[in-house]
Write a protein that binds this DNA or RNA. Structure first.
Lengths: 344, 344
DNA sequence: CTGTTAGCGCCTTCAA
DNA sequence: TTGAAGGCGCTAACAG
């Protein structure tokens, strides 16, 4: 691997001159410029970012920690963040926490050692070590939370308008004629889930439907477990529709439907957060609350980059909440009023 | 951000001693050890990987370039590679090339500047600059190709057994009673696609079915385009089954079926490479050639790490071809012999 | 066992 | 406009 010195020698100039043509910070005469450029090509020289970073203490690197890259939502967030990062000459490095608190801690530490200039974080569902994050921010490494918003943490965050999203979903079900609407949700420890519950309650209240505690089913984000407990729940008090507040839960509910031989929407209505299948080609075509995943990543990265660019301004935490949209498909078409579906 | 010197000062030792307790390369007496550890915690010290790398010229970082993170196949490959990397104390950084040759070139350059110690590469579909890759390998940065194997490039590679995978899919269709089997495939410029074509031909030959040129439909990996041209193809000579050699193409074919109001398997049989939907919950449940995506990533990373560990051994290129499996579902059950489906 | 010190490759004053 | 030189934070001899 050739060094700046090798280039300088070959071009017959000093390392300083080579550096100048590379950074463009100081003007260099055309003949020297040309010779340097030729030497660079000749040697297939790739400047050592490591050394540059050590000198400048700028790595131009952002980190993003997600629970699991194979959940379709996150790659989109990453693409959004990557796009924003690239526009500013930054590289994004993505890692998985497996929803494990300890692993997240370790990753945060690694990223910090790598001197990532800022971090996008979809917090692990487990007990989150808020202290570490606070310390990072205090140490001058901005952190922006995406999607998952941890409790008790004052930080920038970008996510969907949880309660509004849940509300439109439930309102839609109500409009379709459903009344006994169950809420299959994730752990109440997650703020997002609590806010989705809020939207659910609000929709019911506005429709003057009494809330039934037994129709609220908290889960653990594990599809198999959700499927099992959902079977259980259906024994007791059968709802006429189910709204799932996240994708793993939604899949679990669908599995339970299959095992119970329940058809949607004939036997039970269904709406879920997040696209469960790749395309509209498959049935049941599930009515879905679609999050602006790319935009969430993009906006979060923009905020992060701004914090990096202006570290001295300790403004109040920025909270961006982007609207979700409802994609009405087959699973929520009521038997009662089959022709009133509001498509979009 | 505190430095090793700050830790040394606080602990009342020299920087060398701190370094020793961190790396464990040299024994340190217990009392000093304790004091150093305390100082590290006290200062929330995170060793600067940048500086360490500059000194040791080891970054313990691997790069992986994929066409598009949002294609479900790749996150699994990445998880596999990440797992292997982690077992060896390496970090994996993943980036998207958008199937663009120039972008891939740029990423390779960035990764090289970052001093990634090795690179996993799923080459962009466009014209691939083989020279750059060869140069990297010559410069001592091993490259292992995953999934996509470029032409005219002598390099390590890990992918699925393309021809075998295609063959079992087509054999299955034949066994199900289909005879006029169309092949919806990607560009012939990709070696993988050519090998899948080979498997198709072999299956037909062994079943003594004549090959019909008009039933081979090369495409461009774009779902919408495939759907359109597939409609076209169906005008001419209607096959009784279609085998798609990759996921975007498979989706395109399904769209065409929908537009043509063709049902599977009643009107036409269908098998595709790669899972199209998340779960078995959706219909049509598509018979699928499943690639061992995680293992592909895992094995590729292992080979890469071995190359890194033993740079001096210029062995012949390693080519690993992992077997795919056929997941038989509904779209390939023949009307002719409805009860003979070989489940697995 | 512990401390000292010379660079790793680069950027950036500062002089010339 | 160009060159020389210090030092970023750390590790790895080496000396004590």
């Amino acid at each position: 691997m050739s060094t700046i010195k090798a280039v300088a020698d070959l071009a017959g100039v000093s390392v300083g001159t080579v550096s100048h043509v590379m950074t463009g910070s100081v003007p260099v005469s055309e003949p020297l410029r040309t010779r340097v450029l030729a030497a660079i090509r000749e040697l297939d020289y790739h400047p050592n970012h490591i050394a540059r970073s050590l000198k400048t203490s700028r790595t131009r690197t952002l980190g993003i920690i997600v629970p699991d890259l194979t959940i379709p939502f996150f790659p989109q967030v990453i693409r959004g963040a990557e796009t924003a990062a690239r526009e500013h000459g930054y590289t994004l490095i993505a890692v998985n926490s497996d929803d494990s608190g300890p692993r997240q801690k370790e990753l945060l530490s690694i990223l910090r050692s790598q001197r990532a200039e800022g971090i996008l974080l979809a917090v692990a569902a487990g007990p989150a070590p808020v202290g570490q994050i606070t310390r990072m921010v205090q140490a001058g490494i901005p952190v922006v939370c995406v999607d998952r918003i941890p409790d008790r943490l004052v930080a920038d965050s970008v996510s969907v308008q949880d309660s509004q999203a849940a509300q439109i979903a439930v309102e839609h079900l109500i409009e379709m004629g459903y009344r006994r609407i169950a809420l299959a949700m994730g752990p109440l420890a997650l703020k997002n889930e609590r806010r989705r519950l809020l939207g659910y309650r609000r929709a019911l209240r506005q429709a003057q439907i009494a809330l039934e505690r037994s129709l609220i089913w908290p889960g653990n984000l594990n599809t198999a477990d959700v499927a099992a407990s959902c079977l259980e729940c259906f024994q007791h008090r059968k709802p006429d529709a189910v709204f799932a507040t996240n994708a793993p839960t939604g899949l679990g509910v669908l599995r339970a439907f299959r095992d119970l031989k329940l058809r949607t929407p004939e036997d039970v209505g269904f709406v879920t957060f997040d696209e469960l299948s790749v395309d509209d080609l498959f049935s049941p075509a599930v009515t879905t609350v679609v999050q602006p995943a790319f935009d969430i990543g993009f906006r979060a990265a923009e905020i992060l980059l701004e914090r990096i660019a202006q570290p001295e301004l300790p403004r109040d935490p920025i909270s961006v909440r982007l609207p979700a949209s409802l994609r009405v498909r087959d699973t929520s078409r009521s038997r009662v009023e089959p022709c009133c579906a509001t498509q979009n």
